[in-house]
């Protein structure tokens, strides 16, 4: 081993080395592999192509997009070394509350009969506010009471679901105005997802916000000693995650033209799975929006592939569980493969 002409020890880490293959590239290769397997299985068992079917693909992309919006927020939370289990319930609560401000006057049983036909900005602001409040409560609890994120967001998960059910005593909220419904029609959810992804890709990669998010997940103590206001930053990150869950809730409600208290159940786990499949490390400090984007598509391809193969829905649930655990195991394996520096 050639010593690099320096006083510092000549360990292998001194050598200018090629960067290891990125998790994003690995995930992309995985995506291609999985898609090809389904293509092959399609021809064997269904006698048709899996990939070359625009209808199937567009349904898949739509499904991925809604949960993907949540996954963008969850990715940032996980990079700080935290977790957000409340997003699915925040989706439910936001869908109900936002929808109640978006109803048409021609519907006789509106939640607020005197508040119908409101301009679309009202329910959107209400929905975003719901998400922000939920996320901010998570963030404040985690940053200032030092409750583990798992527990704090578990509490929010139960509470927000309770609010969703209590809000109309379990009755669905339907008949939105056309302008609110437009939020979920056609390919709008996909565009919303991609716009959000691009926005936070830039924020994480090119701004101080991103640098501090990674720093906190890497070494919270170091971040604090370097003068980063860790508490304020965590509140910001969890608030953004809540806001995005709220946005997803509105998109789902608009798409289905109805809001129900049970909406978004288990979405938090799907979102976490997308992030982890895409290389976001549950131990914090590593991951990217691009990775989560690829993870989301992988997740969508697997679910849509199993539907395509007419796999029983029960099996699909079980396999989802296996995928999540497998992604986490893969992450832990990568952890152990990291060079130990100390």
């Amino acid at each position: 081993m050639a010593n690099q002409a320096q006083a510092v020890s000549g360990s292998a880490a001194d050598m200018p080395q090629k960067r290891p293959r990125s998790h994003e590239l690995n995930a992309l290769l995985g995506l291609v592999g999985i898609a090809l397997i389904f293509e092959l299985l399609g021809w064997i068992f269904q006698g048709q192509s899996f990939l070359f079917n625009t209808q199937r693909l567009s349904i898949m992309i739509l499904q991925v997009s809604v949960v993907g919006i949540i996954a963008i927020g969850v990715t940032q939370v996980i990079i700080t070394g935290g977790i957000d289990l409340s997003s699915g319930s925040v989706v439910g609560a936001t869908a109900m509350i936002a929808m109640s401000f978006a109803q048409v006057s021609t519907y006789p049983r509106a939640v607020y009969p005197e508040l119908t036909d409101l301009p679309v900005i009202v329910p959107i602001l209400v929905g975003l506010a719901c998400g922000i409040v939920a996320g901010m409560i998570n963030g404040l609890l985690i940053a200032f009471t030092k409750i583990p994120p798992f527990i704090a967001t578990l509490g929010m998960m139960v509470t927000a679901r309770g609010i969703a059910k209590w809000y109309t005593r379990g009755q669905p909220v339907s008949f939105p105005t056309d302008s609110f419904a437009a939020l979920g029609q056609g390919m709008t959810p996909v565009f919303v997802f991609l716009a959000i992804a691009l926005l936070f890709h830039i924020a994480l990669k090119y701004t101080v916000y991103g640098k501090h998010t990674y720093a906190i997940g890497s070494n919270e103590q170091a971040a604090r000693m370097s003068g980063i206001n860790v508490e304020r930053h965590l509140v910001l990150v969890y608030t953004i995650a809540g806001l995005l869950a709220g946005l997803a809730g509105m998109v789902i409600a608009a798409r289905g033209l109805t809001a129900q208290a049970g909406m978004g159940i288990m979405y938090e786990l799907d979102a976490i799975a997308m992030a982890v499949i895409g290389g976001v490390s549950l131990s914090g400090g590593r991951g990217s929006i691009v990775g989560t984007l690829i993870g989301a598509v992988i997740f969508g391809v697997i679910i849509s592939g199993f539907t395509f193969l007419r796999l029983d829905a029960y099996y699909q649930e079980m396999i989802k569980g296996v995928i999540i655990v497998a992604a986490v195991v893969a992450d832990m394996y990568r952890q152990r493969m990291r060079p130990q520096s100390r």
Binding site: T207, Y214, G217, S218, A222, A223, H233
Partner: peptide, 30 residues
């Protein structure tokens, strides 16, 4: 050591006092 393991050398040297192009609060560009 108050270093963030997952960040590179310049990020660590400038941790908490990053150089930015213009001030947009936390969303200032690095």
């Amino acid at each position: 050591l108050a270093l963030a393991d997952d960040l590179d050398v310049p990020s660590n040297i400038f941790l908490g006092r990053e150089e930015t192009y213009f001030n947009l609060g936390p969303f200032s560009f690095l």
